[in-house]
């Protein structure tokens, strides 16, 4: 990414139109994916990266149709394997800006293994996880993020499984960047995606996405007009974690747990409220923030974690440099003629 930033001066001014593909967008009307596409088209031109240097990689699912709708280099892969394909793209050419588009099923069920490993390696790839808590493309089976008890096509009596929380999974896999946004807040989506792109290392942005057909209003508690003020905490680095219409509610740390408090009640003042530190290497508070959910807590939105750590790409380039500087083998002919050889 640094490379690309150095190139900024020679890059012509890009606009949203540069990234709109000529393909018909085939998501259902009202699907949250449309808004995500629109935000991405706004973010890409702003990054100072040549339009030929973007590669968008996906797996399979409604969300994974995404690459067809962006005018970049792109691969629509196979179910669950986007992380592995994207890894190969990035390792082969570290100068590319690689984006992985994936659904909750694609990423966390069939692709769960690849997902934790890409995060652990901290490859400089931007992962956009469309979480609609359902299998959209296959028409409505539960996914690894479906809330317990939800009735779906494959859980007519309600699911009996405990769902994954993507944020906890990322942090557990030693992730360096995790953010959460909703498909109904384009401004926040653009800001967060932009920050994710700038992060050195694997960035995971979970987008709470609405599937109007199979899990309509699944995030309503967080996103609906009536409840969102009380159920969304917009995190800003260095600022107190306040929320509510009057910004009169906040999060404090009591003992080892988070707690919702009201300013003015029980002597609580703004000074008692937790200040968000996204750079904190310690995972404790980040993990608790990722876990917060209504009705008890507001859902944490924005960048929860963004820590600096060596990327896979940097480490790889370093050892390649060492090998180049120290090896006596300059060509494959040298190699073939190395060690025990004899003449006849």
């Amino acid at each position: 990414m640094e490379e690309s930033q150095i190139k900024v001066p020679v890059i012509p001014e890009l606009t949203k139109e540069d990234f709109v593909s000529d393909q018909m967008v085939k998501w259902c009307p009202g699907c949250g994916d449309h808004a995500i596409l629109s935000s991405m088209e706004k973010v890409f031109p702003k990054l100072g990266i040549r339009k030929e240097d973007f590669v968008v990689v996906s797996g399979i699912g409604c969300s994974s149709r995404f690459p067809y709708y962006m005018n970049t280099y792109g691969i629509h892969g196979i179910h669950g394997r986007a992380a592995a394909i994207a890894s190969g793209v990035k390792i082969a050419n570290p100068e590319l800006s690689v984006w992985m588009i994936t659904g909750d099923g694609d990423c966390l069920a069939i692709g769960g293994n690849h997902f934790i490993h890409i995060v652990r390696r901290n490859l400089d790839i931007n992962i956009v996880l469309f979480n609609n808590k359902i299998y959209g493309l296959t028409k409505g089976q539960f996914s690894p993020t479906t809330s317990k008890g939800t009735k779906t096509k494959t859980s007519p009596l309600g699911t009996i499984e405990i769902p994954f929380n993507p944020g906890e999974l990322v942090i557990g896999a030693q992730g360096t960047f995790f953010a959460r946004v909703t498909d109904s807040n384009p401004k926040m989506m653009v800001d967060v995606l932009f920050e994710a792109a700038r992060h050195n290392g694997t960035s995971v942005v979970e987008i709470l996405q609405n599937c109007v057909i199979f899990s309509n209003k699944v995030h309503a508690l967080i996103t609906s007009k009536e409840t969102k003020e009380n159920n969304q905490l917009h995190l800003k680095h260095g600022e107190p974690m306040l929320f509510g219409k009057q910004k009169d509610k906040g999060i404090i740390l009591r003992g080892t747990n988070l707690e919702v408090v009201k300013l003015g009640e029980n002597g609580i003042t703004e000074k008692d409220i937790l200040i968000h530190n996204k750079f904190n290497h310690d995972t404790g508070v980040h993990n608790m923030l990722a876990r917060m959910a209504p009705p008890e807590f507001p859902a944490a939105l924005g960048v929860i974690r963004a820590v600096e750590q060596e990327t896979y790409g940097q480490a790889l380039m370093d050892i390649i440099d060492i090998a180049k500087n120290t090896s006596t083998l300059k060509s494959v002919d040298d190699l073939l003629n190395s060690g025990n050889i004899w003449e006849i």
Partner: peptide, 14 residues
């Protein structure tokens, strides 16, 4: 699976 998929990504990349 990741072995071949990463390789395929690299193939796309040249």
């Amino acid at each position: 699976i990741a072995g071949i998929c990463s390789s395929l990504g690299a193939s796309f990349t040249g």
